[in-house]
Design a protein around this nucleic acid. Structure first.
Length: 178
DNA sequence: GATAAGATGTTA
DNA sequence: AACATCTTATCA
């Protein structure tokens, strides 16, 4: 399988969010590799009030201002991690939240942004790592191109709630909500 | 230094 | 519908 190159991420965030559907998230744990097909994403751009980078560079959001092609992992609600891919060029402050996977190899619970992090052991340790090489402990490979992508309102936010920036594969049973 | 709220998931 | 439970951002 082909690892998605840096150039894949240096594009419009909404396009990356759509194109990530059908791609395969890979996570190395010791010598084992877990895989899951991305079936649900959300796009966050710097000009979006719901985006962590909306108010500029902070200790948490700083990795979003790096060049695309790295991970952004944050901790929320005192117990949950969420995994994002940074997009666009340096200083753009954009990212795509991975909300759900369809697990391969194993029967894992990966329908939801925090459940997939738990299932794949994604923690703060993976914040800011290069995801464009399979020498890292996490990366994304090219998958198939879904022909039935739907857009909808994002979940769990207040500001910018009306933006249609959630994308998922219509009918896939691993998508987080109905 | 203190405090309020949060891109959630589980349990009741 | 409540709760678990802690980081980040904001304000003093």
């Amino acid at each position: 399988m082909t690892v998605l190159k840096k150039s894949f991420y240096l594009k419009d965030t909404l396009d990356v969010a759509r194109e990530l559907l059908g791609c395969v998230l890979c996570r190395r744990i010791n010598d084992e590799i877990l895989r899951g097909v991305i079936v649900e994403t959300e796009a966050y751009t710097q000009d979006d009030p719901a985006c962590h980078a909306y108010k500029g560079i902070t200790e948490r959001s700083k990795v979003m201002f790096e060049d695309g092609g790295i991970s952004y992992v944050y901790f929320i609600y005192g117990m949950h991690y969420c995994f994002n891919t940074v997009t666009e060029k340096k200083n753009q402050g954009c990212a795509v939240l991975i909300r759900a996977l369809e697990p391969l190899d194993k029967s894992l619970k990966t329908n939801g942004p925090s459940r997939l992090c738990k299932a794949f052991s994604i923690t703060k340790e993976l914040n800011g790592v290069d995801i464009t090489t399979n020498k890292s402990d996490i990366w994304i490979e090219k998958g198939f191109k879904p022909d039935n992508i739907t857009s909808a309102k994002r979940i769990g936010i207040k500001e910018g709630a009306d933006y249609m920036r959630r994308f998922y594969i219509e009918g896939n049973k691993w998508v987080s909500k109905k």
